[in-house]
Amino acid sequence: MSKYSLEAFVNETKENPQQKDYFELETPHLLEINLNNQAVWTKRGSMVGYVGGINFERQGMLAGGIGNLLKKAISGEGTKLMKAEGSGRLYVADSGKKVRILYLNNESVCVNGNDVLAHEQSVKSDITMLKSIAGMMAGGLFQVKLSGTGHIAITTHGEPLTLMVTPDNPVFTDPNATVAWSGNLSPDLKTNVSFKSLIGRGSGEEFQMKFSGNGWVLIQPYEEVYFTEK
């Protein structure tokens, strides 16, 4: 059999039937969620395929998942979730970004809203905005705090790097390259330029996130720019 034959291609790329965990990485960029009469929240538009009896429901403006009406109105596309419920195998992905599965054990983690791919229904989610004019102008600078017990899946552009935060060594990051941080940290947004110089700019080194205390911050080798839906 030729290594370029259709049979060889199918054998190389087909799913692994031995994988039965709730959340599984089918490939580094593709998450498989095995549902057994369960429900899960996924980023809207992330479904690329499914097998079995799975129903999808758009999140209502005031229903479960992330946030309330006001938060949804100002927080951009990264907050919109889809509820998937039933039994079968669900495949989700986000623009070819790398997927990382985390299991929370009565813990919390904060994630950039655009980098949340999926989470179990048992995991509580809540949005907080960075309350500064620079943060609002950057677009997409809102955080989702995921807490409780259960699986979550986050995405990064390329291989991420974790920076440790200590009281003696605060960490400064580019907001658009910041993916996640430990749930006990509350970042400040710092800027050393005037408001006038920020007008018309969507990203860049004009301002940074400052993390102080004890914890960690996850960054990616890419500055992701977000656009709020009209």
Rank of each mutant, 00 (worst) to 15 (best):
S182T: 12
I152P: 01
L163I: 09
S132V: 05
L141Q: 05
I133G: 13
G202D: 08
H157N: 06
L185C: 07
P160F: 01
D126K: 15
L141K: 00
H157W: 06
D188Y: 12
V179W: 04
I133N: 12
V171R: 08
K196V: 09
M164R: 07
P160G: 00
K190F: 11
S194N: 14
T149L: 00
A153T: 12
G158N: 02
K190P: 01
G150A: 03
G183C: 08
F142R: 01
V144N: 09
H157K: 03
V193L: 12
N184C: 01
T166A: 02
D126W: 13
V179K: 06
L146M: 10
I154C: 06
M164K: 07
I133P: 10
F172T: 13
N176R: 06
I199K: 15
I133A: 14
A177L: 09
H157Y: 11
A153I: 10
S186F: 05
S132W: 07
A134M: 04
G140R: 04
S197V: 07
G140K: 03
F195A: 15
T178M: 09
W181R: 07
Q143G: 12
V144G: 03
G140F: 06
A177S: 13
S132D: 14
L163D: 07
S186E: 09
G183P: 08
G140D: 01
K196D: 14
T162K: 15
F195T: 12
R201G: 06
V165E: 02
K190D: 09
I154M: 09
I154Q: 06
K131I: 15
G139Y: 08
L189Y: 09
F195K: 15
K196G: 13
D126P: 07
T191L: 03
L185V: 07
F172V: 13
V179S: 10
L161F: 10
K196A: 14
A138G: 13
G140W: 05
G135V: 02
F142A: 02
A177F: 03
A180S: 11
V144A: 05
G150P: 00
T156I: 02
V165T: 03
G158E: 04
V179Y: 02
Q143T: 14
T156M: 04
L163Q: 12
S197E: 15
T191S: 13
K190Q: 14
L130A: 11
L141I: 08
G158K: 00
